[in-house]
C-alpha cells in the first residue's frame, strides 16, 4: 500500500482511527495527514467516534498496586518539554501565576511544595464560584502529601510489608518503615459504610490503642491511607468501624489486625 492516491488514503481513515492498519499503512496515513486538511478533520472525528466506543466499555477496577507503582514512577519520571506552538495557543487564564517555563524549572518532584502551592492558588482563582472545586483541590493537596509519604515508605531502607484478610471480605496490606516511624494500609474489597459510620485506624501497643485517623472506603472498595502519628517497632495496626467522627478508643472488634515487626 504505497499509493498516495487521495481516494485510497481517504478510504483508510476508518481503519486508521480503529488501529486496524498494518504498521506500514499506519505510517503512510500519518505522513499523508500532514498534507491533507480534509483527512485530518475526518480522522479527528473518527478518533472521537472510536473513543466513544471505548468509553462505553464496562470499567474494570485497577489493583491498588497499579496506582502505587504509577505514583512512584511519576515521582522520578521527567516530563517532555511542551511544544512551544501549542503552549502559546493555549488559553492561559492564569496570568498572575508564574510562567510555564518558570514552573517547569521548579517542577523537580522534591521541590513540589512551592510549586503545588502556586498551582493550587492559581486553580482556586480560576474557578471562583465553584466551592466544590476548591474542596477538590484541597483534598488533592492532602492526598498528594499522603502519596509522597507512601512513596517514601516504599523507598525506605527498612521497608517491610504484611498482608492479611479483612474480616467480612477483602484484603489489606500494611507497608511500614520503622526508620521513618510511618506506615500505610492498602485495602481492596472494603465494604462501603453507611454515612453515620467511619473506618478508624489504630496503633496498638502494650499501653493500649491510639487513634491513627479515620477514612472512608472509596466507591470501588480500593483505598489506602497513611496512618497519622508515629509507628514504633512492634506496634500492631488495627481498623475498626466507629461512629462517624471517630472514637477515642475502639468500640468494636477490629476488621483488620496486622502486626509490624
Amino acid at each position: 500500500m504505497s499509493s498516495t492516491d487521495d481516494n485510497s488514503m481517504n478510504n483508510m481513515a476508518g481503519a486508521f482511527a480503529l488501529d486496524a492498519l498494518s504498521a506500514e499503512e499506519r505510517s503512510a496515513v500519518e505522513a499523508h495527514l500532514g498534507e491533507s486538511e480534509s483527512m485530518q478533520k475526518e480522522v479527528a472525528e473518527m478518533r472521537e467516534t472510536a473513543s466513544l466506543l471505548g468509553r462505553a466499555v464496562t470499567p474494570v477496577e485497577p489493583s491498588v498496586a497499579l496506582k502505587l507503582n504509577l505514583m512512584t514512577l511519576v515521582a522520578s519520571t521527567p516530563q517532555l518539554p511542551g511544544a512551544l506552538a501549542s503552549v502559546s495557543a493555549l488559553p492561559r487564564e492564569k496570568s498572575s501565576s508564574p510562567t510555564t517555563s518558570e514552573r517547569k524549572a521548579q517542577s523537580r518532584w522534591f521541590l513540589r511544595p512551592v510549586t503545588i502551592f502556586a498551582a493550587a492558588a492559581a486553580s482556586v482563582a480560576l474557578v471562583i464560584g465553584g466551592v466544590a472545586v476548591a474542596n477538590t483541590i484541597i483534598d488533592a493537596d492532602a492526598k498528594l502529601a499522603q502519596t509522597n509519604q507512601l512513596v517514601a515508605i516504599n523507598a525506605s531502607n527498612d521497608f517491610q510489608q504484611a498482608s492479611v484478610d479483612v474480616k467480612g471480605g477483602g484484603h489489606a496490606k500494611l507497608v511500614w518503615s520503622v526508620e521513618l516511624g510511618s506506615s500505610a494500609l492498602l485495602m481492596d474489597g472494603l465494604a462501603l459504610l453507611p454515612s453515620d459510620k467511619t473506618y478508624q485506624l489504630w496503633y496498638i501497643d502494650a499501653a493500649g490503642a491510639r487513634s491513627a485517623g479515620t477514612f472512608a472506603a472509596a466507591g470501588n472498595g480500593s483505598t489506602w491511607r497513611v496512618l497519622d502519628g508515629t509507628l514504633a517497632k512492634g506496634d500492631t495496626v488495627g481498623v475498626t468501624v466507629e461512629p462517624s467522627g471517630g472514637s477515642t478508643s475502639p468500640t468494636t472488634d477490629p476488621i483488620i489486625i496486622v502486626t509490624s515487626t
Binding site: 505514583m71 511519576v74 516530563q79 514552573r103 521548579q106 477538590t136 488533592a140 492526598k143
Partner: peptide, 12 residues
C-alpha cells in the same frame, strides 16, 4: 496542572 508537574492532579 499535570503539564505543570502536578502529581496530585495526576492522581485525580
Amino acid at each position: 496542572r499535570i503539564a505543570d508537574g502536578d502529581q496530585g492532579a495526576f492522581s485525580n
